[in-house]
C-alpha cells in the first residue's frame, strides 16, 4: 500500500514538477506526524529559521497591551483615528477568532477574552508572497516574510490573500498619527502595505523581537527552529502546540502552546 502510494505521488510529483516547479522528492517524502496536511520540506541543516512560540497559559487573563505598544512604538506604527484605517502589527483576539476551526462553546473562560496575541505568521508557504505582483513582499532564507515598502504599489492583493488578517494598508499618510517617531526605523508613506517583520532589524543586531523582550514572564519565546537545542524546539517537544488554520497548508511559524 505504502509503496504504491509513494509511487503514485512520485509520478504525480514528477508531472507536477513541470507545472508548479515542485520537486518529486519533496512530494514523495514519507509523511511524518504533524505534517499531515503538507509533506514537510526538508529542513536545511545549518540554516537559521526563525520561529516564535506563544504560551497561551501565560497569556490568559493578562494585559498584553504592553507588548503591543513596545512593537508599535519602535516600528513607528501609527495610531489611526478611525477603526477602518487602523494599522496593526500585533494585537490580540479571543481564542475562537484566532483559531476559528478549533473553538467550541465550552472554551475555558479566560480564553474567551482577547488573550491570544496574533501577528504575521511568517509562513513557510506564504500566500501573500505568492500573489504579490512585484515581489515587494518576499520570504528570506531565514523564513522572515518581509516587505519592500519602496516597491509596493499598494494593490492590496496580499491583504486579500492573507488568511490571518495580519496585513495593514496605509489608507492615509501615517506620519501625523505617530506619537513619537523612532529615528532608527523608517516611517511609511500612504498607499503601501505593512506588517510584522519579526523584528528583522533587531535580529540583525543580535537582539530579540521587541514583543518578546517586553514580555517578562516568557510567554513569548523566539529562536531558531532549525537548531534542535533551541528554546523553541525544546518547548515544542515538551508541550502540545497548535498553529492558526493549519488546514490551509501555509505552515505558520508562530506556534501556540495550549
Amino acid at each position: 500500500m505504502g509503496g504504491s502510494r509513494r509511487d503514485f505521488l512520485k509520478t504525480a510529483g514528477a508531472s507536477l514538477a513541470l507545472l508548479g516547479g515542485l520537486s518529486a522528492e519533496s512530494l514523495a517524502a514519507p509523511l511524518s506526524e504533524g505534517e499531515l496536511f503538507r509533506p514537510g520540506e526538508p529542513l536545511k541543516e545549518g540554516n537559521v529559521r526563525w520561529a516564535m512560540v506563544v504560551d497561551l497559559k501565560k497569556c490568559a487573563g493578562k494585559d498584553l497591551s504592553k507588548l503591543f505598544e513596545a512593537c508599535h512604538k519602535i516600528h513607528n506604527v501609527p495610531d489611526m483615528e478611525r477603526e477602518k484605517d487602523k494599522i496593526k502589527w500585533i494585537w490580540s483576539e479571543p481564542f475562537g477568532h484566532a483559531f476559528p476551526n478549533q473553538e467550541h462553546e465550552y472554551v475555558a473562560r479566560p480564553y474567551q477574552e482577547k488573550t491570544v496575541p496574533v501577528m504575521c505568521n511568517h509562513c513557510e508557504r506564504p500566500p501573500c508572497v505568492r500573489v504579490c505582483p512585484t515581489q515587494a513582499t518576499f520570504k528570506r532564507e531565514d523564513g522572515i516574510v518581509m516587505m519592500d515598502m519602496h516597491r509596493c504599489i499598494g494593490c492590496r492583493y496580499c491583504i486579500v490573500a492573507c488568511p490571518y488578517g495580519s496585513r495593514s494598508f496605509n489608507w492615509r499618510n501615517p506620519r501625523p498619527y505617530i506619537k513619537e517617531i523612532n529615528p532608527e526605523f523608517p516611517t511609511r508613506t500612504k498607499g503601501v502595505v505593512e506588517k510584522c517583520n519579526f523584528c528583522a532589524e533587531r535580529i540583525a543586531r543580535g537582539k530579540e523581537p521587541a514583543c518578546v523582550e517586553a514580555c517578562t514572564d516568557g510567554a513569548l519565546v523566539f529562536d531558531d527552529i532549525n537548531d534542535p537545542n533551541s528554546k523553541v524546539r525544546q518547548l515544542l517537544e515538551t508541550r502540545y502546540s497548535i498553529r492558526r488554520k493549519p488546514v490551509l497548508g501555509t505552515m505558520p511559524h508562530v506556534f501556540y502552546l495550549v
Binding site: K84, I159, V160, W171, R172, G191
Partner: peptide, 12 residues
Amino acid sequence: GLGVTGMSRDIP
C-alpha cells in the same frame, strides 16, 4: 490616499 474610500483593513 485611499482613506477617502469606504475600504478598510477588513474590506481591502
